[in-house]
Every structure is written in structure tokens, then in C-alpha cells.
Design a protein around this nucleic acid. Structure first.
Lengths: 218, 218
DNA sequence: AGCCACCCCTGACGATCGTCGGGGGTGGCG
DNA sequence: CGCCACCCCCGACGATCGTCAGGGGTGGCT
């Protein structure tokens, strides 16, 4: 049985959600909160499997409440509009789902089941926005960067990766067992082939191509 | 009536999908393709509202086919596993949805309706990955970067922004009407306050904080 | 007023970077 | 084989960077 906590300041909305959730015999509403502060407290008290939380609420808003519950209980945000700022903040702050109130009631059940199962759920319109965001982040910029980087020799990519982490030529030499002069020669070739003027721009290219730091791919 | 094109090299899978889609009276399958090349051709010929496409297919794989159809017809990728590389590439290349074959059949209907409606759909497990990716991209790194940057003086932020675009101290001086020595002094202060060792790392911090180029927020 | 903290500006000096010229190795090709 | 293209390696030299020490200005506080 999936245990759900509802948080919405309007009793009517809570009643509606309860009614929808009741159509699924595997889901039960264990508590209801009328504001963010109460939601956080009840979440700690009841330990539900999922929290359904409205964004606009008195005292503590849904985003802040979700942030406090991040890692404790998965939270699905509910909202009337798919406003960009909310989506970005909510997902960054730890929400596991984002549901539009205008959604098909069946979506609600799927979302609750998915989130209780450790997955995540985005309303189609929200998913659309997120994907559009990814596209500009992952495709347009890095695509050219990635292409340029792929034209380098393997050794040059080794060097570029370390340049992208801000290492000096001397440090890169130590890391790769090369003389500093060798590193510089590779770098000269890198700059020419990436069509940039200095190591800072090369580092940014490396960064856009996803060569930097602990790989944050999707 | 939503018109669907199915693309999967296994006839059994196509039959199963057709059966599921048939349970929704608002959806009809107008064509079936057995490989990516055929899918692209049939998509242009039939102009369906949605293409359901397997990733692994002969001749042209699903990812490449989806890329060719980007902007023409919305494509939902179907796959057995939620492999990272596939998700990232498919979404970047233009897929509007990503569905696991193991999903609840009801999900398929919701996904088709959503995508036909101009939205997007991600299977819960896929959404989970995407959100996790966003989180490391948008929260953990940039949040601290932004905080550090905000501790700088206005003049230092001016300088940092130009450093982040790969300009030399001399060029920055010209841009801001400063002597080169002044730029260097600001930079020294920047390095100390950002807690980094050289301009490359400062540039990356600037980049993460969103000071670079056309802002790519979500 | 005097003091302090902070910001902005600047030049000199050692450290680092980027270019140039060049050596050695491998693989494809007439 | 001889030639060419490419990759990897290296040191010297001028250009650029980063630090240090310091001057001038402003605003808050006693």
C-alpha cells in the first residue's frame, strides 16, 4: 500500500485529490497539510511514501518545503501553470515530480506509483520544457565543441582535459609524465585545431564538450 | 484521431503495441516500419501525428532516424533499458519522449496523447535520470559558483566576466579602460575570493555561475 | 576630525604561457 | 626502399600572467 501525504491550502483541492487517489486500491492518503510548515512536520511524523505538494501555500511555500524534505521523502509538486522558474527550482531543489493540476487524473496515479517506486514523473508539458532546456544545454553549444574536440589526437585530448580542470603546464606534465615543453607543444596544436587563442578558451571548449570534472552527463 | 507510425524490427513487438494502442478509440496505427530507413520514408509519406520508434534497428538505428525526423514529426523512443547514453543522445537529437518497454501499458497511451498534443513524455525511470542530471548541472556546481561570484565586488565581476570569455589582461584593460596592472590586481583578488589558483579555474567558475555567453538557463 | 575598512587604481618583478624550430618513431604508398 | 604524413616528444625565447607593495577615494563610526 502506497501511503500519501497531501499538502494544499485549499480543502476543496485536497478533497478532489483524495477522491482521485481513492480510485486506486493500492493508494491511501495518510495525512493532509494546509501549508508547507505543517507538511514538513507531518511528513516527518507519518513517513509517507510520497508527498503531493502544492507550490503556492502560506507560511512555507511548496518549493521550500520540498527542499527541506529532499532525501527524506519523495515530493511531487502540483501546480496550475508550468512556469519555468518553478520547474527549474523545484527540480533542482529536490522534487521528484512535477504535475499540472489540469492533467488527466490517470496521470496522478501513475505519478504517485512511479515516485513511490523511486522513479520520477514529469507532466508532459513540463517534460517538454525540461527537454527543450536540455537541448540548448546539451546540443547547440556542445555539439560544435564536441566535434572540434574529436578532431584532436588522443594525446591532445589528454592534455586538454587537464587544461579544462585548470592545471598548469607543469602540473599536466607531471600528471602525464611529460616535459613541460611537450605539454606546451601539444597545447599549441590544441589551440590551433580548436580555433581559439588561449588556454582559457580551450578550457571552456573542453568544459562544453563534457570533458571536465566528474562527468555530469545525464 | 491520433495517427501513429510504429517502427520496430520485431513483428511481435509491433503486434503488441498495436494491440495496446487499439484499446484507445482515439488512436489508430497508420503504418509500420521494420527499420529506421523505412521509418523515415513512411513518416514523410503518411505524416503521422506520432512515431513510436525502437532504438535498436537494422540499417538506420532509432536515434539517427529520430534525428532525421526532428522538427517534422514528434518521436517517442522505445527501449528495453534506460541506458544513459541513449537517453542523453535521444533527447538532444530531438526525441519528444522516452518510454521503457517494461512500462505500464497505460503509460503508452498517455505518452502518445501527450506527444501528439505537442508536449513530451518521459518514463518515470528516465525522468529520474534526467532530473538527477539537471541536479548536478544546475544545483550542486553552479549554486556554489554563484554564491562565490556574488561575494565579489562589482568591478571584479566585470573583470571575471571577460576572463570567462577568454580575454587577455590587456584586452580586458582596453575593454574596461584600465591599465593592465589594474586588471591583474583585480584578478589576484578574484582568485583569492573564489578560492582558485589561476584564471582558467576562475573562468570555469564564471561559466558555471552563468556569466558566460547567451545564458542557457532551463 | 580622526580612524578604519573597503574599493579602485597602478607599476615592478618573478613565474607561467605560447611559439618556433627541430628530433625520433610509425604507417601508407608508389 | 624512399617519401610523405602524422603523431609524439623536447628546449629556448619573447609575451603574458599573477604577486607584491603602495597611493587615492569614499563611507561608517567614535
Amino acid at each position: 500500500m502506497i501511503r500519501v501525504l497531501l499538502a494544499d491550502d485549499e480543502a476543496m483541492i485536497r478533497a478532489g485529490l483524495t477522491a482521485v487517489l481513492a480510485t486506486d486500491p493500492g493508494i491511501t492518503v495518510v495525512a493532509e497539510a494546509a501549508d508547507g510548515r505543517e507538511a514538513v512536520e507531518l511528513a516527518h511524523a507519518h513517513r509517507p511514501d510520497v508527498v503531493l505538494m502544492d507550490i503556492r501555500m502560506p507560511r512555507l511555500d511548496g518549493l521550500a518545503a520540498a527542499a527541506e524534505l529532499a532525501g527524506v521523502v519523495p515530493v511531487v509538486m502540483l501546480t496550475t501553470f508550468d512556469e519555468d522558474a518553478y520547474v527549474a527550482r523545484a527540480l533542482a531543489d529536490g522534487a521528484s515530480g512535477f504535475l499540472l493540476k489540469a492533467a488527466d487524473p490517470r496521470e496522478l496515479l501513475i505519478a504517485v506509483r512511479a515516485v513511490a517506486d523511486g522513479a520520477a514523473y514529469l507532466s508532459p508539458r513540463v517534460a517538454h520544457r525540461v527537454i527543450a532546456g536540455l537541448r540548448t544545454n546539451e546540443l547547440t553549444r556542445p555539439a560544435t565543441a564536441r566535434k572540434k574536440v574529436s578532431s584532436l589526437t588522443p594525446r591532445e585530448r589528454d592534455v586538454l582535459a587537464l587544461v579544462g580542470r585548470g592545471l598548469s603546464n607543469q602540473e599536466i606534465g607531471r600528471e602525464l609524465h611529460l616535459a613541460e615543453g611537450t605539454v606546451k607543444a601539444h597545447l599549441t596544436s590544441i589551440l590551433r585545431n580548436l580555433d581559439v587563442q588561449n588556454r582559457v578558451q580551450a578550457a571552456i571548449t573542453a568544459y562544453e564538450a563534457g570533458m571536465a570534472s566528474p562527468p555530469p552527463r545525464i
